[in-house]
């Protein structure tokens, strides 16, 4: 049931509209710069493991983050630095996790994009795609059982995740339970190297919503204003009790799957199409055109963000790495159940 989303209250007001655009833009910019810093550190051999960038997906991600309240639940994916920050994740959490600081939220036990703070509603993804949806369902389900109203849970996916059994099971489950879930699918045309014509056969991914009895919304993922309007609307509908919402954003990943990947498989035709436009540049043009901000303001924000990122990197680099001798090699929280340390 593809639906037309009308602008929700706050975006309908001029001041709030300006504010949400500028907030989202600043998260986009910070995410782009943070990602670029991670790519530099990766090339310098300062990061163990992979680095995954959100280049080209910042508008969608930031719009998702700013549409949520701090008391909501958010399960971001690998290209959601912008959304994470907008939801409240400190830059230092990201930097510490990428650099393996013992003081980060994952303390070197997990790395890069696998970070979060579950008790603050920010879930640390496992690598198995689609697997976080039912976990968010469970938090929303539990809040309903406990009589806590008004929460929304947002989950970010790529189009590849819509092929998984977990996606199917969890979206159906959310529909059966009428949970306030918003699934944001970044259709970035490739799942790692696999193009869409080898991934799914429906005419449009929003068609998948119909089969589950879930409202589905299409949006141009390169257009910040459209993302704010459509995702803001979907979040408002979920919060108002209209059940799960599926948002499918069309865009192009403007980088490899990870920094190890040169993305040579991305065809020029797509790069030169409207999908291949850089959402950050488009947002800057749009904000200037709307007279929300000017180039001088962008430059100030850029240098502020760079300073903040450099400070976080400098701090994390001074911090201790995890110590295998001090590590508690225990997987269970019930201390006396831990046995056989493998010695």
């Amino acid at each position: 049931m593809l639906q037309t989303v009308t602008g929700p209250g706050p975006v309908g007001q001029a001041g709030a509209l300006r504010e949400s655009h500028l907030a989202a833009y600043r998260f986009m910019l910070r995410a782009r710069l943070l990602d670029e810093k991670f790519a530099t550190l990766y090339r310098a051999g300062k990061i163990q493991g992979g680095v995954f960038l959100g280049r080209g997906q910042e508008a969608l991600s930031a719009a998702t983050g700013v549409s949520l309240k701090k008391t909501d639940v958010f399960a971001p994916l690998i290209r959601d630095a912008a959304g994470r920050m907008a939801f409240g994740e400190p830059i230092l959490d990201a930097v510490r996790t990428y650099l393996g600081s013992a003081l980060g939220p994952m303390r070197g036990r997990d790395g890069n994009v696998h970070r979060g703070r579950p008790q603050q509603g920010l879930l640390p993804m496992i690598s198995h795609l689609g697997a976080m949806i039912s976990v968010v369902n469970g938090i929303l389900f539990a809040r309903r059982l406990k009589g806590i109203p008004g929460s929304v849970g947002a989950v970010c996916l790529g189009e590849g995740a819509t092929s998984t059994g977990s996606f199917h099971e969890a979206l159906n489950q959310a529909a059966v339970e009428k949970l306030p879930l918003v699934l944001v699918v970044a259709n970035n045309q490739y799942a790692y190297s696999t193009p869409n014509d080898r991934q799914f056969a429906c005419a449009d991914l929003t068609d998948k919503g119909v089969g589950y009895g879930v409202a589905a919304h299409a949006v141009d993922g390169t257009d910040l204003s459209a993302c704010l309007e459509v995702i803001g609307g979907a979040v408002a509908r979920a919060r108002a009790g209209h059940g799960p919402q599926l948002v499918v954003a069309s865009l192009l990943r403007l980088c490899g799957h990870g920094e190890h990947d040169d993305a040579s498989y991305i065809v020029p035709k797509l790069k030169n199409s409207p999908l291949g436009r850089d959402c950050l540049k488009l947002a800057e043009e749009s904000l200037q055109q709307k007279q929300f901000a000017d180039a001088a303001q962008f430059a100030v924000w850029r240098s502020e963000a760079i300073r903040e990122i450099e400070e976080a990197v400098a701090q994390a680099q001074r911090e201790p790495a995890p110590d295998p001798y001090a590590e508690k090699w225990e997987a269970l929280s019930t201390e006396n159940f831990n046995e056989g340390q493998g010695e």
């Binding site: 579950p118 008790q119 879930l123 697997a131 976080m132 949806i133 039912s134 976990v135 968010v136 369902n137 469970g138 938090i139 929303l140 389900f141 539990a142 809040r143 059982l145 406990k146 059994g165 977990s166 099971e169 969890a170 159906n172 489950q173 059966v176």
Partner: peptide, 25 residues
């Protein structure tokens, strides 16, 4: 309201339980 039928979706059944446990259930 506390003993609930689930769809035939073992993956989502366990995932929901994990989320509920995070929420203190």
């Amino acid at each position: 309201g506390r003993v609930l039928d689930a769809p035939i979706s073992e993956d989502a059944i366990v995932g929901l339980a994990v989320g509920a446990a995070i929420e203190g259930m």
